[in-house]
Design a protein around this nucleic acid. Structure first.
Lengths: 205, 205
DNA sequence: TTTCTTATGTTAACTTCGTTAACATTAAGG
DNA sequence: CCTTAATGTTAACGAAGTTAACATAAGAAA
C-alpha cells in the first residue's frame, strides 16, 4: 500500500496552515494538528519546513505580499499626494480588519525573527517601501534638501504610526468603529485630525 | 520535615512571574518553570491562581496600574491642553519602550480575556479613562454640544492611535528612533505632524 | 535494466508544558 | 483535642515541538 501520500504536501500544508491561522491565530496553529488535518504523518511537515517557525515564516511572507499589493493599489488610485496618504491609511486599516490574524502575525511577537528568514525580511522591507514611497514621493521636480528629506521621512513615520495604531486598537477591540458609518470614512476622519490645533469649543450663535 | 514552604507563596510567585515576563515575555513564562524557580512544587501555583491565565491577569493588572500612573502624572504636569496631549503621547511611548513586554501583555493576544477577569477589565478601563479625560478636558467653561463632544472624542482617538502606533512600531523594531535625539523629542515631533498639510518642497532662495 | 542516491514519509521516542486528581500537612477554631 | 479548610506535594494524563531511526519512492548513473 502506498505510503507516498501527495506529490504536493508542501502546498497543501501551507494552505491548511492559512486556514487554521485565519480561524484561530498563530497560537492555535499546532504542527501536529496541522499534519493530522492535512492527512499526513506528524513529522512530515519537518521535511518541507524548518519547524514551526518555518511554516509561520512562509505564511507571513504570503501575508506581507498581499498586504503590499493592497497598499500599492490604494496608492496608485490617488495621484494627489494628500489623498494618497489618506487612501493608504484607510487601506492599511482595512487589511488589518479583514485579516486580523495575518496582521497580527506579521507585526506581532510570534513572527519568526526577520534575520533568520531572509525572504521574510525582504517581504517586510518591500511592504514598508511601498508605504514610504507613497508618502515621500511628492512632486519631485527638484531634488530635496537634506532637511526636506528628513521632514518627508518624519511625515511618513507619522502617517504610518497613526494608521498602525488605529489598526491595532480596532482589531484588539479597544476602538469600536461606529456602526452607522463605513470603516473607511471613519478611518479617514481620524487620520485627518490635527493634534496641534486646539479643539474648537465656541458655541455658534 | 516542614513541607510548608513560604507563608507568602502568592507574592513570591507574582514577583518571579514579573521577572520572567520582563526577560522573556509571556511565551517564556511557563507555570512549571515559574514554580521551579520559586522553589515550590509544580502544582503549587494552582492553589493561588486560576491557572496560567490567572497569573497573566494578575501581572497585567499590575502593569495597567503602573501604566495609568505614569500617564496620569504626565497629564498633571501640563495644564495647557495641547501640551498635555503631547506629554501624554510621549509618556505612552516611553512606557512601551521601557516595559515592552508589559506593554505587549496588556495589548496583545496573550492577555487573558477581559470578561473573565473583572479586575483586569477595571484596570484597563481606568487606564483608558485617564487618556480620554486628559484629551477631552479642554476648558470646560460651557457644556459641549453633541457635535463638539463627538469631535473631542475623535481627537482623543486620533491622539491615542498615533501614540499607540509609534509605541508598537518602535518596540517591534520597525521604527528605530534616532540615536542623536532623546526619545521624547522624537515622539513629540511625530505627534505634531499634520497629515492634512502637504510637504513643503520649495527651495528657499 | 539495474543500482545507487536523494527526497520524502512514517513510527517511535524524548522533553516540556498545562492541568487535574489523590494524598499529606499545616493553621485555625469549635 | 479534633475537625476542617487552606495550602503543599507527588503522580498522572494528554498535547505539543522536535529529533532519530527506519522505510519507500523517484531519478540519475552504471
Amino acid at each position: 500500500m502506498g505510503k507516498y501520500h501527495h506529490g504536493d504536501v508542501r502546498n497543501v500544508l501551507l494552505q491548511q496552515a492559512e486556514n487554521i491561522l485565519t480561524d484561530e491565530g498563530p497560537t492555535g496553529l499546532s504542527l501536529r494538528r496541522l499534519a493530522r488535518l492535512t492527512g499526513v504523518s506528524e513529522a512530515a511537515p519537518y521535511r518541507h519546513f524548518d519547524g514551526k517557525d518555518g511554516i509561520l515564516a512562509a505564511v507571513a511572507i504570503a501575508a506581507f505580499e498581499r498586504f503590499a499589493e493592497q497598499l500599492e493599489s490604494a496608492a496608485e488610485s490617488h495621484p494627489n499626494h494628500e489623498e494618497r496618504i489618506m487612501a493608504l491609511g484607510a487601506a492599511y486599516v482595512q487589511f488589518a480588519v479583514e485579516n486580523p490574524q495575518h496582521f497580527r502575525l506579521i507585526f506581532g511577537r510570534e513572527r519568526p525573527p526577520l534575520d533568520q528568514y531572509p525572504e521574510l525580511r525582504d517581504a517586510a522591507d518591500n511592504a514598508f517601501d511601498v508605504l514610504q514611497r507613497a508618502v515621500t514621493s511628492v512632486d519631485r521636480k527638484a531634488e530635496m534638501t537634506l532637511a526636506e528629506a528628513a521632514s518627508a521621512y518624519n511625515r511618513s513615520l507619522a502617517a504610518w504610526s497613526r494608521a498602525h495604531g488605529i489598526a491595532m486598537l480596532v482589531i484588539d477591540g479597544m476602538i469600536v468603529p461606529p456602526a452607522d458609518q463605513d470603516l473607511s470614512s471613519f478611518v479617514l476622519g481620524l487620520l485627518a485630525e490635527d493634534l496641534t490645533m486646539p479643539v474648537n469649543t465656541d458655541k455658534a450663535p
